[in-house]
């Protein structure tokens, strides 16, 4: 795609990376990695084979620079807090810390292996997460430098690391900040939220090796306790249906532009109107079928990186960019993406 740089690997791949490539790379990369892993003998032979076979692969091998660190705020609010697990360390036994570590890795794998992105800033920025933030803290956020996760109150919310898509959503905010810098207000803000949901969902689907029709398209499934009537925070396939509960209220997300919510709350409804572009992505991805991160996700990623995407972009501006990138992916992709935006009333 025109705006996506395509670097080439000129590095030595460790066995763990080959193993991951063998499971999660593109068809070509999988074949190369599997062949490499089958080769026995001394490690140098494995390395030589890896170098020879993957020399033209996308920048997947940048995975060697994945650097995660998970910290604990120990129920305080100082960041990043006490380091509990650095890259390569064994599991800690602290469920939240290990979930954060694993899910940051799964999210990084989506961006790195599927899109050739080297961490949040595409330059190897360390992934820093803090768990046990505050007391009974009901939120997760990206603070411009790192991801932060609360434990939840235990009555309505479970811990915020429980859902891979939530962890990925926060990391994606960092990517969006570094790329389009979408304003956090109105339609641009709802796009910001929607794109975070898209990559959150894709990270989960890729981790579970799900096709578009196998996925639940829920954001935050498992986050609520059984005490509330809620499936998740949001539904990308049917916005407005994630919860309906006396305590939480009813999911306010619209699924179509005719129901666009004009409000001063929530930064102009950034977590409300994101339902519209969320459903557009769901429609496009399911129309295409297969793994959503491969074609639909790639189109959204390329549109996010497109220099023409302005910080104050509205839904229609982003839709037009996705069409431009879909056209480069073929007629089926173009039709599917157009169908998505037309279904939600963003394009006529």
């Amino acid at each position: 795609m025109p705006t996506t740089p395509r670097g080439h690997v000129r590095t030595v791949l460790p066995p763990y990376l080959l193993d991951r490539l063998a499971r999660h790379g593109s068809d070509h990369v999988r074949a190369c990695a599997q062949a490499t892993l089958r080769a026995d003998g001394d490690p140098n032979e494995v390395r030589r084979a890896a170098r020879a076979r993957l020399v033209q692969a996308p920048r997947t091998a940048a995975a060697v620079s994945l650097r995660r660190s998970v910290h604990s705020a120990d129920n305080g609010t100082s960041l990043p807090g006490r380091l509990v697990r650095a890259e390569g360390d064994a599991p800690t036994g602290d469920v939240a810390a290990d979930e954060a570590y694993d899910y940051l890795g799964a999210t990084d794998a989506l961006f790195r292996d599927a899109y050739g992105r080297n961490a949040i800033d595409d330059a190897g920025m360390p992934l820093v997460g803090t768990v046990h933030y505050g007391r009974n803290y009901d939120n997760a956020f990206w603070n411009g430098q790192q991801m932060v996760f609360g434990d939840g109150d235990g009555e309505i919310f479970n811990r915020f690391t429980i859902a891979l898509d939530i962890v990925a959503h926060e990391l994606a905010h960092g990517v969006i900040d570094r790329e389009a810098g979408l304003a956090y207000q109105g339609q641009a803000g709802a796009l910001n939220e929607s794109i975070s949901d898209v990559f959150g969902a894709l990270a989960k689907q890729r981790h579970l090796d799900q096709t578009a029709d196998q996925a639940d398209w829920l954001i935050g499934a498992g986050l609520f306790t059984p005490a509330v009537q809620a499936r998740a925070l949001r539904s990308m396939s049917a916005p407005g249906t994630a919860y309906d509960d006396p305590v939480l209220g009813k999911d306010p997300q619209p699924a179509h532009m005719r129901d666009f919510v004009i409000t001063e709350a929530d930064n102009g409804g950034v977590h409300i109107n994101s339902g519209i572009p969320n459903r557009a992505f769901y429609v496009a991805a399911t129309a295409l079928g297969g793994h959503a991160w491969e074609v639909a996700g790639r189109i959204w990623y390329d549109a996010l990186r497109d220099a023409r995407l302005a910080p104050d972009a509205d839904f229609a501006a982003f839709a037009r960019l996705t069409l431009a990138h879909a056209a480069a992916a073929g007629e089926d992709a173009l039709q599917a993406v157009r169908q998505g935006w037309e279904t939600v009333g963003v394009l006529q």
Partner: peptide, 14 residues
């Protein structure tokens, strides 16, 4: 005075 923001807008908690 309202507390807003967070990962979702939950009207019952707002």
């Amino acid at each position: 005075i309202t507390r807003e923001g967070g990962i979702a807008y939950l009207p019952g908690l707002a």
